[in-house]
Simulated assay, not measured.
Amino acid sequence: MILQPGTGPVLGDVHLTAAPEHVLWGRLPCAADEPVLEVEPGTAVTVDTISHEGILEDQGRDPAAFFGAHGVTEVLADAVALAASEHPHRFGVDGPHVVSRPVAVAGAQVGDLLAMTLLDATPRVPYGVISNRHGKGVLVGEHPLGGAPVFSAFATVSEDGTHGLLPLTPGAEPTVAFPLRPFLGVMGVAVAGRQRPHSVPPGRHGGNVDIALLTAGSTLYLPVQADGGLAYVGDPHFAQGDGEVSLTAMEASLRATVRLDVVAREDALARFGELVGPLAETAEFLVPTGMDEDLDLAVADCVRAAVALLQARFGMDPSLAYAYLSAATDFRISQVVDVVKGVHATIRKSDFENDPAAPRHALRTRRAPAAGPAEP
């Protein structure tokens, strides 16, 4: 089934479409951006997201033609509208990602955490694309083969909707099946100031974190940098392996429902300590992160974040926390293709008898001040 604009179920309290006026392309929101919505904490927002694959300039900026060449007879109308619009996307200057314009959460202020919980991620199409471009990916200069500027692998979805399918050789019938685990590669809060950041490198604001664990039921906690939080999402994935080595994962459009909550500073400190970057939580794991252009430094930052989290959450001695992490915790490469490399740790919550930090969302009421227009 194709989830066109205006069709299918909307699970959230409010619905944000992917009409051109509701998205940014290649840049992330900043504090000067006017929110497209303002909601109360605890609100579930359903967002229609558009994958950048199939609409980029080096793919023709014509999704009907691009996907039609693979036998697709129906493409998303909002993807066609964005590609055909005068939306100010500067290919080679801006990033590729399509992200929602920001949603303000009443009461969120600098010092708090914004909690973004993915409640549902429903595929809008039964196909996706995995791409590699020259100068990108891990094997720069080796791939794409044959000198082509871009290689795009077209992937389909199994009839039961559980697996992605690829052929062993170009043009053959798809016989390689891998599990689908839909998630949003981009989840973030606006940066301070008036300059919109590039959509590719992740950072303290979140953004293009590309953590494949962030499937439905998971929460991403982000330090608020602008009053109102100004949350946004994008870069929908159907599946990704840790590392995302070729450049993209199975990129494809989702209808995502995200609950937005505010964790007041005093509660945040009790539960997590002083966060210097994104922290995720799943039913099973606490997931601190580390990010740097140097992968070694990203790992070190992630270990420091994990030690600090264990101190704050459980009162664990730092030397014992360091030892515990070595014996019991996996440190995974989130991605290595977004300039700033990412590492995340998977700390099992069940390893600890007592968790004194039960979730509490202390709310504030101060509204974000008005700001002038943002700059690219």
Score class of each variant (00 low, 15 high):
Ala226Lys: 03
Met316Asn: 04
Ile347Thr: 10
Pro223Met: 05
Val93Cys: 05
Glu284Phe: 01
Ala148Arg: 15
Gln311Ser: 07
Arg90Phe: 12
Tyr322Arg: 12
Tyr221Trp: 11
Ala19Glu: 14
Asp78Val: 04
Val343His: 09
Arg181Glu: 15
Gly290Met: 00
Val287Ala: 11
Thr282Trp: 05
Leu3His: 03
His87Leu: 02
His361Asn: 08
Leu76Gln: 01
Lys136Leu: 10
Val138Trp: 00
Arg133Val: 03
Leu320His: 14
Pro126Trp: 09
Thr282His: 04
Ala32Trp: 07
Asp112Thr: 00
Gly234Leu: 06
Arg196His: 09
Asp13Trp: 10
Thr49Cys: 14
Gly71Tyr: 00
Glu281Ala: 10
Glu86Pro: 02
Pro35Ala: 11
Phe285Val: 01
Asn132Ala: 12
Leu168Glu: 13
Ala370Phe: 07
Ala374Ile: 08
Ala121Met: 09
Thr169Glu: 15
Leu254Met: 07
Pro373Trp: 02
Val258Asp: 07
Leu114Phe: 02
Gly241Tyr: 07
Ala226Met: 05
Ala306His: 07
Met116Trp: 03
Ala216Pro: 07
Pro35Arg: 10
Leu254His: 05
Asp338Glu: 13
Phe154Thr: 00
Ala69Met: 01
Ala83Phe: 04
Ala32Cys: 08
Ser334Trp: 03
Arg304Thr: 15
Gly54Ala: 01
Ala321Gly: 06
Pro41Ser: 03
Leu28Pro: 03
Pro167His: 06
Leu56Asn: 05
Arg255Lys: 03
Glu266Cys: 08
Asp62Asn: 00
His52Val: 10
Met250Val: 13
Asp242Glu: 07
Phe331Trp: 03
Thr346Tyr: 12
Phe314Arg: 11
Asp94Gln: 11
Leu320Met: 13
Ala108Thr: 04
Pro318Arg: 02
Asn208Lys: 11
Ala153Leu: 10
Thr329Pro: 02
His237Lys: 06
Arg348Trp: 06
Val10Ile: 15
Ala84Asp: 12
Asp58Ser: 05
Ser246Gln: 15
Gly228Leu: 02
Asp112Glu: 02
Arg181Leu: 14
His70Pro: 04
